[in-house]
Amino acid sequence: MSIVHAQSPKHCAKQGLSINKVYRKLFYSFSTFLLSILSFIFLIWLILHPTKPEFSLKEADIYQLTLSDPHLLNSSIQITLLSKNPNKKVGVYYDVLQVYASYKGQQITVDTSIPPFYQGHEDSNLLTASLVGTGLPVAASFGYEVGRDQTAGKLVLNLKANGRLRWKVGTWVSGRYRFNVNCVAIMPFGPSIPSGPLSFKQGTQCSTMV
């Protein structure tokens, strides 16, 4: 005859409580671990959150801005930009950087690429670019707008840059981020201006968006 061991309802209840306690401890342990990891990541983000790079326009010279017919423009512009990384613990990889000139909302040169480079902590780099356009289509009002600016005695030009960058912290490198830069150059321009390039040498801070 076999002996059947039957557990009382009270014993089963105690066993169920002990199992629930084990699951509860595992849940609390996992929650505490996850919260610690998230807190650590948030703390690192607060400490190392990168400040966007700073750009300033140091110099711009317009050598050509002429219409070959009422709708086609030939242009030649030389610019010098200063790029600065303000971060003390974060480096910047500039993977893509393209520069062009704009006038009255119209692009007046083709995109010019600047070779990729790395910028260390709190480093600065001078960037030069020759911006040209040959037979670029422009609005019919372009010649009128230039003539009106010549009468007013000043020409307002936008020098723009866009591209992709990556942040570097120690050996860790982030994914790519888009960035846009806009610099405004106001140049003396009028009938009494001597022949030669229109020049901007005052230096101005540019706006940067990442």
Rank of each mutant, 00 (worst) to 15 (best):
Q15M: 06
L43M: 08
L46Q: 15
I37M: 14
I44Y: 07
V22W: 13
I77H: 02
S113R: 02
E54A: 10
L82M: 12
H49N: 15
W45F: 11
V99E: 09
G16L: 12
A13E: 13
L34W: 12
L35D: 02
L17R: 08
N74P: 02
A6C: 13
K84H: 13
L72R: 03
Q15G: 02
H5S: 07
S83D: 02
L35Y: 08
G105W: 06
H5E: 15
S31V: 15
P70G: 00
Q7E: 14
V110E: 14
I41M: 13
A6K: 12
Y93R: 04
S83Y: 07
K104L: 04
F55C: 06
Y93V: 10
Y103K: 05
V22H: 08
S18L: 13
T112Q: 09
H5F: 12
K52C: 09
Q107M: 11
P9D: 06
I62W: 04
V99A: 07
Q15D: 08
D61E: 13
Q106L: 07
L35T: 09
K25N: 13
N74C: 01
P50N: 05
S39N: 04
T51I: 10
K89E: 02
S39H: 01
D95R: 05
D111M: 05
K84W: 06
F30C: 15
L81T: 03
W45N: 09
C12V: 11
V4H: 07
I79Y: 00
L97S: 06
S8Y: 04
S36Y: 06
W45S: 10
K21R: 11
Y103P: 03
Q78V: 15
H49M: 06
H49E: 05
G91R: 10
Q64P: 04
Y23I: 05
V92H: 09
F55W: 12
P9F: 05
W45C: 09
L57E: 05
S18N: 08
K58W: 03
S68F: 01
I44K: 03
V90H: 01
K10I: 04
S36A: 15
F30K: 07
L43F: 12
E54N: 11
P53I: 09
Q7P: 03
K88S: 13
S113M: 08
K104W: 08
D111R: 03
Q7V: 09
T32I: 13
G91Y: 03
F30I: 14
L65K: 01
I62G: 02
D61M: 04
S75F: 00
Q7S: 13
D69I: 00
K21H: 10
D61V: 07
V92A: 01
P53Q: 04
T112N: 14
P50W: 01
P53L: 02
H5P: 03
L57C: 01
N74T: 00
L65D: 03
P86D: 03
Q106D: 04
P53M: 09
L72V: 00
H71W: 00
I37T: 14
S76H: 08
E54Q: 11
E54T: 08
Q78W: 12
P86T: 03
I108P: 00
S113K: 05
Q78N: 14
L38F: 09
S102P: 02
L34T: 11
L97N: 10
L81A: 03
K14A: 12
L17Y: 06
S29W: 05
A101V: 04
K14M: 10
I79K: 07
K58G: 11
